[in-house]
């Protein structure tokens, strides 16, 4: 069931800070993913939690690409996996096209998986070394009873062709392929169930630069062809700028800024986004030499024991008294431009 304008569902969604229009495919609200830290051998007691994702709100519109950036360990991948219910979220809601995923039973969720897929970071680890390419790509078809026998073989060959591989490769094993080719196999597997939504979990980070471009082009081509919606997780800012419609910046388990691509890259509001973007090199020596870089001091605090108030205040050059006391709300400062900062802007 889709969220239609005029229903109660729709009005409720509108009232929150990050609600988009009625065509949202995915609505994430107050999502938390904490991993408990336990102590003791027989009687385990919880001594704390890694707050990998600590209350994030965002939505993804149908057909768009939402880029999710942030440094290593800020909770980007965890967010992707918690959305797909590969981890059971600690709190919050994940609404996919009108269906609440966090409360779905095992079998219902299994059926929903047809509509949402994932492309993994490491093309070497994400393919079973003892299965042929045909079996790997054909498995989703078997699992969801989509095709059998000759029809399945045909479909697998078609998928290989779609991702730019030779359809005769079905009987080969993953180790016979290069990294870029393997990533294409992973993409073909994700496409097998004809999903609407794909979480791309750093799909190009493990590939070398020349192959990165090919895979990015393939992803864009597939998006046009199959009307796909992407959540594109990456830490390469220029790639995200290229592929995304909107970009969300994460820091220590929270989204600190979310805006349309151009807005975010031209006028970042949050100091962390500003610092992050100032690190992107500019391919023009004249501009590059005058480029003002913001160098952050210190390390990212531990997600086990995040700082009070605004999580970024320990490294922020704008920090005031209030920053260490009050956690800034995630507010729409400009139309479709949210940020969580007490002193947003330049």
């Amino acid at each position: 069931m889709a969220v239609t304008p005029g229903t109660g569902e729709y009005t409720r969604a509108r009232s929150t800070a990050t609600a988009g229009s009625g065509k949202n495919l995915l609505d994430v609200k107050a999502l938390k993913m904490h991993f408990p830290l336990t102590q003791g051998i027989i009687f385990q007691r919880q001594v704390g939690a890694v707050r990998a994702v600590d209350g994030i709100d965002f939505f993804v519109e149908k057909g768009e690409t939402l880029g999710l950036v942030g440094e290593s360990g800020c909770g980007k991948s965890t967010t992707g996996r918690a959305i797909l219910q590969l981890y059971k979220p600690t709190a919050g809601t994940v609404n996919f096209d009108g269906t609440e995923l966090t409360t779905l039973g095992g079998e219902q969720m299994r059926k929903m998986r047809r509509r949402m897929q994932m492309i993994f970071q490491d093309p070497y680890a994400s393919l079973n070394p003892r299965m042929t390419v045909g079996n790997i790509i054909g498995e989703p078809l078997e699992v969801h009873n989509l095709a059998r026998g000759g029809e399945k073989t045909q479909r697998v060959q078609e998928l290989l062709r779609v991702v730019g591989l030779n359809p005769y490769f079905t009987n080969r094993y993953p180790h016979e392929f290069s990294g870029g080719q393997r990533q294409r196999i992973g993409i073909a597997r994700a496409l097998a169930v004809e999903p609407e939504f794909i979480v791309c979990d750093e799909p190009i980070s493990a590939l070398d630069v020349s192959i990165q471009a090919q895979v990015i082009n393939l992803l864009e081509e597939l998006q046009d062809r199959f009307k796909l919606t992407y959540l594109f997780i990456a830490h390469d800012l220029s790639v995200v700028r290229h592929i995304s419609d909107r970009v969300a910046v994460m820091y220590l388990g929270k989204i600190v800024e979310l805006a349309d691509r151009v807005d975010l890259y031209e006028r970042p509001l949050h100091p962390y986004s500003q610092a992050l973007l100032s690190a992107v090199p500019i391919p023009d020596p004249a501009v590059e030499s005058k480029r003002k870089r913001i160098i952050l001091t210190g390390d990212v605090p531990s997600p086990v024991n995040p700082p009070s108030g605004c999580r970024f205040h320990t490294r922020c050059w704008k920090a005031q008294q209030i920053c260490s006391e009050v956690d800034p709300e995630f507010i729409e400062h400009e139309p479709r431009h949210w940020a969580a900062c007490h002193f947003p802007g330049a």
Partner: peptide, 14 residues
């Protein structure tokens, strides 16, 4: 814990 098992979960394998 290997990623291809996560991938199998993702495609909805029992």
């Amino acid at each position: 814990e290997r990623e291809f098992i996560t991938a199998a979960h993702t495609i909805g394998a029992r």
